[in-house]
Amino acid sequence: MRAIAVLVVVTALLAVAEVVLVAGPHYPRGVFAVFGLLGCVTIVVVSKLLGKIWLQRPAPSDE
């Protein structure tokens, strides 16, 4: 939990820095942090799902 708290604080500081330092950004502020989190969860969930229902097989004995 402590690691997650530290990462959230770091991310929040980066978002604040963006608000303070970047005038007229091309993308909504903080969008990359949200995209990173949601993208990570999506990749893991979709990949695991594909693995379970289709792609993964037990390793053969010589593995």
Partner: peptide, 15 residues
């Protein structure tokens, strides 16, 4: 800052 946010958001997801 955008790329650092992307990495930080990913790290939260990993954690």
């Amino acid at each position: 800052l955008g790329m650092l946010q992307l990495l930080a958001g990913t790290a939260i997801g990993f954690a």
